[in-house]
Each structure stands twice: as C-alpha cells, then as structure tokens.
Design a protein around this nucleic acid. Structure first.
Lengths: 208, 208
DNA sequence: ACGATATGAATGAATG
DNA sequence: CATTCATTCATATCGT
C-alpha cells in the first residue's frame, strides 16, 4: 500500500455514471464489472486516515454507510466499495507482513507464480510483535479484539491439513471423504445451529 | 457477485491422480492447489434455483444431504459445501443490502411512516432479471439475475481441460430444473420440504 | 505493447 | 445469523 499509491487521478470525477461509455475495452455490455470503482486520492486519503489514525479495520454496516456517504463527495462510491476496501487493506497488510516476518524483505512473488503455486504458507512461527508499520492505532474504537495488526490471530494460517493432529485425514482423500476436520462427538457449541460437521457423510446424527 | 464467474471449475482436482486423458497438455501438475470447493456452473445454477425459486435459505441437515447428493453428479461436492453456500449466499444478500441502503431500519418500536425507505435499486448496474441461464424464475425472486455463466474467462496456465467428463452437463441444464433431489418434478411445493423449525429458530422463509 | 504489480471484487470457509 | 479471514480472479496502472 504505502509503496506507491496511485497518485494521479483526476479528482474530478466520477465518471461515467452508468452504462455508457464504452471506453474502449472492446466489449460493450459490460455489466458493471468493467470500470470497477477507482478511488480518488481524496477518498483514499480519508480511508487511510480512518484505517491508520482511527483504527478502523472492519467497519460494520452502519459505519460503512457513514463512510461511504462522506466519501461520496469526492466521487462515486458505494457501500460495498468501502467494505471491500477495508477488507482488502487489512488482509493485504497482514499478508505482506506474513512474508516479511520470517525472512527479510525480499521480493517474493507471493502471487500465483503462474506455475505450481503450492501456496504453502509457512506457519509463522513467530510473528514479531510490535512491527506496526506505522500504525498508530489510536483508541481502537469498538473493534473486537483485533485492533492492532500485531495481535492478529494468525494461528489460522496453519490451516486445516497440517495443524494438527494426526495425518489420518490424508488417507481418505481418495474416497469421498471429507478432509474436514474430524468431528468431535460430544462437542456442542452454545450457538449450535447445525454445523456442517454433522451431516458431512453418513453421520448426520440427530440434531445435536 | 456473479458478474464473472471465475475459477476453473470442475473437479478432477485431487492432486495428480491419474492423468487419464491428461495427455501432454503442457504442464501437468497444475493441480489446482486449492483445497476448497469450486462449484461448477451447473452446481451454481441448481443452488440458485433452490435459493430463488424454491426459497431454500437454510436447509437442514437432511436437505443438505439430498442437495449435495444431487449436485454430486456435476462435480465433487460435500455436505458442508452446500451448507456454507446457503449460509454465505443468504448472509451476503442481507449484508449487501444493509450497508448499501440509505434507509436505516433501526428498530422502530412503532410503525413510523417517517422512514424514508429509499429503497433505491442500489444494485450497481442492474442486470436484467432472468438472465440466469434459463432458470425457471418462479414467483418473484428478487432481482439477482446475475447469471452470466456463459462468460468465458482467461484461465491460467493450469487449464482444466483434462478434467473430463463434464461439459455434457450443460445440455440437460434446461430440462431438469425442477427435478429436485428427492421430489417429483412437477409438483414444486413452495417451501414444503422443510419442516418449520427444526431445532433452531425458524428463519427460513422469512423474507424475500 | 507487454509483463509485473497493485488493488477491487467475489466467495469459500470458519468462528462467535 | 453476522463477521471475519483467506484465496483467488479481474482489471487498472505503471514500468520498461
């Protein structure tokens, strides 16, 4: 993100409203997919300000509305744009950090290398805490627990296959089984609607 | 959501299994590297059909079993996939509406007409309904016509051609729409198949 | 023009 | 059910 944002851009704006245009692109009938939202500098500035100065990471619906309403002054924008922006910004900051922690900053492709892409995420053995790339993290409004990037629960990375327990799951891959985490009979979550664990195969026991 | 259906579909994934028919094809071992389910177009079509035409929102374990069994003929799939699909689809439909609408539906104790209810079709560039590749379109079905299954996209190096034996599935797509898993086509109960309230709070047919 | 990168958008999978 | 995370696709943009 920081490396270089798109600095140019006309603030002007807002562009074509709908349909239209046909800017080149070759295909008409572009259904909204073309011309994805391109934030203006002002919008980006405000978004980053919210992100870094106000600690906003995952705004809820209400906040999103407010934010998008505010940003609308600077160009066309929708709620989902704001939503995705925060999602992406957060995810990418994290992702970038993940590569940077264990190793020195190298130029890692980190993106599908056009080849094998095993994408084997190395379980970050130790994420060095406190490397908040300039994040101020003031206050941390009402977020859930994550506020700072540093304390993210990245244990999720270890993913399903490895983390665990036995490698037994690897065996059934040829069948129709589910490499899904083993069920834990007897485990009844408080908020149990029915979890997928229940019906996966033939198990599908009673309703909890 | 659907403006561009992506991903290489169809299974065959499962690691390098037998490369029957895989032939040279450039690089083998492309292997999709993803452990997550990638629904085929047919599977998506059916799921949407269930969702929009049959009002299926939160199928219970039993329904999930049947649905997944039915979808299995179009590609690898498991119960949890169906479960998650409905969960996500429903959640996103709501969420999108939530932060995109100008109207705050805050719990107003009484019916106060003052609410704005802009209800503007926030749908960015609404796609004309009914574009869902010929699904039946019974009842009202909110918009969400985004079908665009025909759209072809650039795949990555890892082509999926070897995947085999589907492709034919596209043909029958228009016929058996109503042939729901265990139900006789022809009699399509609105929401008959799931019993009201299973073990959780009934949420199923609330809205639309 | 391409190729690489940055980033918007979408969605499967989980968790609370 | 809502929220969040991870992954991947699609495309705008920049560099050479």
């Amino acid at each position: 993100m920081e490396p270089h944002q798109q600095q140019n851009q006309q603030a002007a704006n807002d562009i074509q409203d709908s349909s239209s245009g046909g800017s080149g692109k070759g295909s008409f009938l572009c259904r909204q997919s073309s011309t994805r939202w391109t934030p203006t500098t002002d919008q980006i500035r405000i978004l980053k300000d919210l992100y870094y100065s106000n600690g906003v990471r995952s705004p809820n619906a209400d906040q999103i509305q407010r934010i998008s309403a505010r940003l609308r002054q600077y160009g066309k924008i929708e709620g989902k744009n704001v939503f995705y922006w925060f999602q992406n910004h957060k995810a990418r900051e994290r992702q970038k950090k993940r590569f940077n922690t264990t190793d020195h900053h190298h130029h890692v492709p980190m993106q599908r290398p056009t080849s094998i892409t095993l994408t084997n995420n190395k379980c970050p053995t130790n994420i060095n805490p406190g490397s908040s790339t300039g994040v101020l993290t003031v206050g941390q409004i009402g977020n859930y627990g994550y506020g700072s990037i540093t304390m993210e629960k990245s244990f999720r990375n270890c993913s399903i296959s490895a983390c665990g327990s036995n490698a037994a799951s690897a065996s059934e891959s040829l069948s129709h089984n589910f490499g899904w985490v083993g069920i834990d009979p007897g485990y009844s979550p408080p908020y149990a609607f029915f979890e997928p664990k229940r019906f996966i195969d033939g198990i599908q026991e009673e309703g909890q």
